[in-house]
């Protein structure tokens, strides 16, 4: 019944329904999150016997004085700022174009969606060749414009750019699909009304498409920011298990990975995870605040 009052029995029943998912979530999400928060305060830890003999802020102090962590934070921010706006703009542009064509539109949509379903490792292998300094397609293409060969993956100056280009391309597929859904949801009447009101194509775009697409743009950018802050596998695959030439593509998650798996400094790894958590939280809260004023549902 719809107007049923919650009783002990009905609450218990609801809990039973929720239980299977709850067990999985608690085991694999909630517990590790809590554990890593606690772990970030372990300063003396015997991991062979799982005995913590001292808690404190030493791990965070270490992070703030570790030049590697500074590089990681800087690189992560560069990556986010480089990838997210480009992804939003390019995928919106491609979605607008795809929305216009009727000829073979299904084929084109599939082609653009392919990067999303392809494994990152496979993509990285292909881009590895594209970026190849001597035989790569990209340098070959640039040579037409008189640009000298660039060693994309070996030079610390270009490694981050190479990583950003590949990530943007990889992100396009899914975001294009989201934008296409958003575009299809805009009623044709608004465009007709705008035309009647004297809006040319550009004004229709800025006054109808952009504001009415804002929920999707918001979704894509929040999703992009969170995903980009957590970047790891693209780096691992593109630079063959290294954080780029002279740490030029060292990001926070890569730093965390190194501390955890190669140096066994669990406390420091957990602390860097906590720092990342608060960075993402800060940016997402800012985005939510911004969306209150500029996103029209």
């Amino acid at each position: 019944m719809l107007n049923e009052k919650p009783t002990l029995k009905s609450t218990g029943k609801a809990l039973l329904y929720l239980l299977p998912m709850l067990i999985i979530t608690i085991t694999f999400n909630i517990y590790p999150i809590l554990k890593s928060f606690i772990m970030s305060f372990y300063t003396k830890y015997d991991f062979f016997r799982d005995i913590v003999s001292q808690y404190g802020f030493d791990n965070f102090k270490f992070l703030f004085s570790d030049p590697d962590f500074h590089i990681a934070v800087k690189n992560t921010l560069i990556f986010v700022i480089g990838v997210v706006p480009l992804t939003v703009i390019i995928s919106l542009a491609i979605a607008l174009l795809l929305n216009r064509i009727t000829w073979l539109s299904g084929l084109f949509r599939t082609v653009y969606f392919l990067p999303f379903v392809t494994s990152t490792v496979a993509i990285a292998q292909v881009w590895h060749w594209i970026y190849n300094g001597d035989y790569g397609l990209l340098n070959y293409f640039l040579s037409f414009f008189g640009v000298n060969a660039i060693s994309w993956l070996e030079s610390p100056h270009y490694a981050m750019l190479a990583l950003i280009i590949m990530s943007v391309w990889k992100n396009l597929g899914f975001n294009i699909v989201l934008f296409l859904v958003g575009l299809n949801n805009i009623n044709e009447r608004y465009y007709q009304a705008a035309k009647i009101d004297g809006a040319n194509t550009w004004h229709q775009f800025t006054n109808v498409t952009v504001p009415l697409l804002s929920p999707i743009t918001f979704l894509v950018s929040v999703n992009g920011v969170i995903g980009s802050f957590k970047v790891f596998d693209e780096i691992f695959a593109l630079f063959n298990g290294t954080p780029g030439p002279s740490k030029s593509a060292l990001t926070i998650v890569y730093y965390l990975y190194q501390k955890f798996y190669t140096e066994w400094k669990y406390g420091i790894a957990a602390a860097s995870g906590v720092v990342l958590f608060f960075m993402i939280l800060l940016v997402t809260v800012f985005q939510l605040w911004y969306s209150k004023r500029h996103v029209h549902y």
Partner: peptide, 20 residues
Amino acid sequence: QDALQRKVGMVFQNYALYPH
């Protein structure tokens, strides 16, 4: 001429007011 050039006023069945 298209709608832009004809400059008529129109009220649509569902009004099509800009929701934002």
